[in-house]
């Protein structure tokens, strides 16, 4: 029986590619929250000296590519990755994978992605899609953020695979190898390892701008923005925070709901009710992030624009920082 690739819609592109490829290779139990949790997807980082499209560089998730690699490693799977300096080689390699019937993940830039609406086409190069076939010269594409599958022409495919700028994909193609049967016990054993690593990253990494304390760091910056940048630019900065946090790919609430969903699933695997309680804490954090976005929205819509409104935004982030810190501490204390 020939294996059929099945499109799965997900909140986040990398989770989605990982989930659908692992499922294709026989891991029927795989879900987006499980990939995200096992891959230590949740994170917080504010890089002060770097700007992204003229605004603050803030990330709510770990580095592109890490989620799939880390989740795979815990399950004994190897991710085979290839990058190219030569477009022809990259083109041939992809075609060969399709010929032998191996669906692959491709890292692409969205600026030249024709099916994306123009409003979303920035020079963002860490988008991920699955290419699972070719018909009439068109690649069959499963873009995890979309409800249905789509296609790309050869020319467009090459363009998006060789987008330039930060995180340039350089034709990056990847797929899981060596996928074996994984038992429920093995998953239950992998979960504590993943959680331990996540709590370490969110609580113990040095530096004020990383982890749960990093949210507090951003809050302190927000207090200074209005004086330093002027009201208009400061409001634009807040808009950028909201976009990083809520835009397509995050599942809402800056990935916090996704992590809460993982903990719920983890409680199921490990028969530990404590995890459900802590899951609720992350739901609360996600809700607080959404509330903070609403407040920031009032500022960048121009309804509010006093220093006290920026202070209020900062206070909300301080609260989130505390909620997350407490939640990760309870996670760390948990005997799993």
């Amino acid at each position: 029986m020939e294996k059929q690739f099945k499109h799965i819609q997900s909140a986040h592109c990398e989770n989605g590619v990982a989930t659908s490829l692992l499922k294709y290779h026989g891991m029927d139990f795989m879900s987006e929250p499980l990939v995200f949790g096992l891959g230590n997807g949740i994170f917080y980082l504010h890089i002060p000296f770097l700007q992204i499209s003229g605004g603050p560089a803030i990330s709510y998730r770990s580095m592109p590519g890490w989620i799939f690699s880390r989740a795979s490693k815990l399950l004994g799977v190897k991710v085979n990755r290839k990058k190219f300096s030569n477009e022809k080689e990259a083109y041939d390699y992809l075609n060969k994978q399709i010929e032998i019937g191996n669906p692959v993940g491709c890292q692409v830039g969205v600026f030249n992605l024709p099916y994306f609406p123009p409003e979303y086409r920035f020079h963002f190069n860490a988008h991920n899609i699955v290419v699972y076939g070719k018909e009439n010269g068109q690649y069959l594409v499963s873009d995890p953020v979309m409800e249905i599958v789509t296609t790309l022409s050869e020319e467009d495919m090459l363009k998006v695979r060789f987008a330039k700028g930060a995180l340039a994909p350089r034709g990056h193609v990847y797929y899981p190898e060596n996928v074996k049967d994984v038992s429920r016990e093995q998953i239950a054993q992998a979960i504590p390892k993943a959680i331990k690593r996540t709590t370490f990253e969110m609580l113990s990494l040095p530096g004020p701008m990383v982890g749960a304390k990093g949210i507090h760091y951003t809050a302190n910056h927000i207090r200074k923005w209005r004086d330093k940048l002027g009201p208009r630019k400061a409001a634009l900065y807040l808009g950028q925070i909201v976009r990083m946090q809520e835009e397509i790919g995050t599942g809402g609430g800056g990935f916090r709901f996704l992590y809460a969903a993982f903990l719920e699933e983890a409680s199921n695997y490990t028969n530990n009710d404590q995890l459900l309680k802590i899951s609720d804490e992350f739901t609360k954090a996600g809700d607080l992030w959404r509330a903070s976005a609403v407040h920031m929205g009032r500022i960048y819509k121009g309804r509010l624009n006093e220093q006290k409104d920026f202070e209020e935004s900062a206070n909300m982030l301080d609260e989130i920082s505390e909620v997350e810190r407490a939640a990760f501490k309870s996670l760390r204390k948990l005997k799993l």
């Binding site: 997900s10 929250p33 099916y115 953020v145 709901f257 809460a260």
Partner: peptide, 18 residues
């Protein structure tokens, strides 16, 4: 996104499950 897709979000259902 109207002409491209609806986006997937993680939400709590009536029973409080994700």
């Amino acid at each position: 996104l109207a002409h491209m897709t609806r986006e997937l979000c993680y939400v709590k259902d009536k029973d409080g499950k994700y």
